[in-house]
Design a protein around this nucleic acid. Structure first.
Length: 254
DNA sequence: ATGGCTCGTGTAACGAGA
């Protein structure tokens, strides 16, 4: 099973790129973040024609997540329990016994902001929910835009980013907490030393200078990790015209 | 030293992103 995640920064703008990418990368499951469109706008017919089922949680202007899958799915959950959250950032679906989770973890603004407090509150609710899922679903894959760089290797300028909610020591610890739960970071597991990013700033020629961050992740439970055959960050769409600032990440499980 | 781009909204700038 091939599972991918991609923050598209507006599905309205990026739809043709998503279709083009799927045509050359026919993954089984694709998790999308930052749809930036209402539920009525979601192009379900486009994905149906490509042979995909789809589930989505949208809202006006910001956020929004979707999961599309070749095989049917069930046990759909569209919000985190115990968190009153008007922002659409969470979606989970079970496909062929694999529990797939699509996350758009809050950015966090500045360290002293309400947005950072919200990010921490959101993560606490996520961890609480994941503890339950972990026991319930041996085959569990948690994908998405984490807005957390796990280690210095994943950050172009670690000292600068340490002063932000993307790479603060506290957020590095949060990521380690997820690994301590038993999850493996698919990319880092297969490529312990490689410097590869999933996001590059639109400004400053971030992509051409390869100044970026690795903040989009696929985490897998031990039962899934034992079958992990590859994990690739696909930089090609980042070089297209009007690209998303994020690259897709693809994990293949045997 | 600052902001440098790309979104949506709505039709001008502005907030948000990371």
């Amino acid at each position: 099973m091939k599972i991918a995640t991609w923050n598209v920064n507006s599905l309205t703008v990026r739809l043709q790129q998503v279709v083009a990418w799927l045509n050359s990368n026919p993954v089984d499951v694709l998790c999308l973040q930052e749809l930036k469109q209402t539920d009525e706008m979601f192009p379900k017919e486009v994905f149906q024609k490509l042979g995909y089922h789809a589930w989505w949680r949208g809202q006006k202007t910001y956020n929004g997540v979707a999961i599309i899958s070749r095989l049917p799915g069930d046990e759909v959950v569209g919000e985190l329990p115990h968190l009153e959250d008007p922002q659409r950032r969470f979606l989970a679906v079970t496909v062929q016994g694999v529990r797939v989770v699509c996350l758009y973890i809050p950015n966090g603004g500045e360290l002293d902001s309400d947005k950072y407090a919200y990010k921490k509150q959101w993560l606490a609710a996520l961890f609480q929910w994941l503890e339950g899922e972990y026991g319930r679903y041996p085959r569990l894959v948690v994908t998405g835009d984490y807005n957390i760089a796990p280690a210095a290797l994943d950050v172009h300028k670690p000292a600068m980013w340490e002063a932000t909610p993307i790479f603060s020591p506290e957020m590095q610890e949060s990521f380690r907490q997820m690994l301590a739960m038993g999850f493996g970071d698919c990319f880092r597991t297969l490529h312990p030393q490689e410097v590869q990013y999933t996001w590059w700033d639109y400004r400053l020629g971030g992509f051409s200078r390869n100044q970026g961050l690795r903040i989009d992740h696929i985490l897998a439970s031990p039962a899934m990790l034992s079958g992990l055959a590859s994990c690739v960050i696909d930089k090609i769409p980042r070089g297209w015209d009007r690209p998303s600032d994020h690259a897709p990440v693809v994990a293949t499980f045997e």
